[in-house]
Design a protein around this nucleic acid. Sequence first.
DNA 1: CTTGAAGCTCTAGTGGCTAGAGGAATTACA
DNA 2: TGTAATTCCTCTAGCCACTAGAGCTTCAAG
Lengths: 137, 137
Amino acid sequence: MFSIGEVSRRTGIKVPTVRYYEQMGLIAAPERSSGNQRRYDRNTLRRLEFIRHARELGFSLDDIRDLLRMSEGAGTPAHDDVHRIAGEHLRAVRARIERLKRLEAELTRISSCKAGTLSDCAVLETLSDHALCIGEH
Amino acid sequence: MFSIGEVSRRTGIKVPTVRYYEQMGLIAAPERSSGNQRRYDRNTLRRLEFIRHARELGFSLDDIRDLLRMSEGAGTPAHDDVHRIAGEHLRAVRARIERLKRLEAELTRISSCKAGTLSDCAVLETLSDHALCIGEH
DNA sequence: CTTGAAGCTCTAGTGGCTAGAGGAATTACA
DNA sequence: TGTAATTCCTCTAGCCACTAGAGCTTCAAG
Ligand SMILES: [Zn+2]
Ligand SMILES: [Zn+2]
Ligand SMILES: [Zn+2]
Ligand SMILES: [Zn+2]
């Protein structure tokens, strides 16, 4: 059995975040010591590692809750659902990349301003007027 | 003089957001009608257009506050400061793109799972174990 | 047995809004 | 001028995924 600090060290998830995940229903309320401190088993440790990795890959806590439920083999059409969640997330990630690339192009362009004074600065001029932009965002 | 709804229509910023910007000190508290309703002048309209465009380009409200102060020609070394803010933001955008690209590579890889069952699903296996990943994130 | 680290609960703050309640003002039209 | 529809007001609370801090209790090492 592991204390919450031990769990935190092993998973890399901060102590308050572990408690937050419990509150959010991602992990069950663990057993307690005689003095009311949380004591975790190895299963919960694995579950938290899953959560951490899924978070690193950008999944929302809602998605992770669903993925965990499926990985426990709850429903029958679960494999499709897993891929639906992953696919939607991938599409969202790609959309964010596209948006950020447009921002990057615009910011790169305006940052190349060679003016010495504020009144001719391309940054401020462009911020004042989207018509000076090369594309949408 | 424009009502807050008129301002909202002209700038594309929602009414509660305009009030929020006032609360956050991005625009001054405007004049009021005899019945206590906000009445805006053209300067504020331009200011809000600046804010909107800067938000679309991903600047934080804190950055925008600084940029607005500089565009009014407050301090002397302002042009450098403008470029420092824009440059830092550009670097942050690039870092986010890099991170998202790594996520995308990983998500693309795991989504190509051809298994028919949950127990062999590459999505769940990879989420359980970062060692199955091709890179960092 | 003492001490310091680690744990507990609870509240509040982060950013950038958005939604809703409950009421007052304005505007359009008959 | 009456009235109904629309817009406006303030205030509070919610979103996501944490994070920080106060004030207290328990645990582990020496
Ligand atoms: Zn410049
Ligand atoms: Zn633009
Ligand atoms: Zn699969
Ligand atoms: Zn990984």
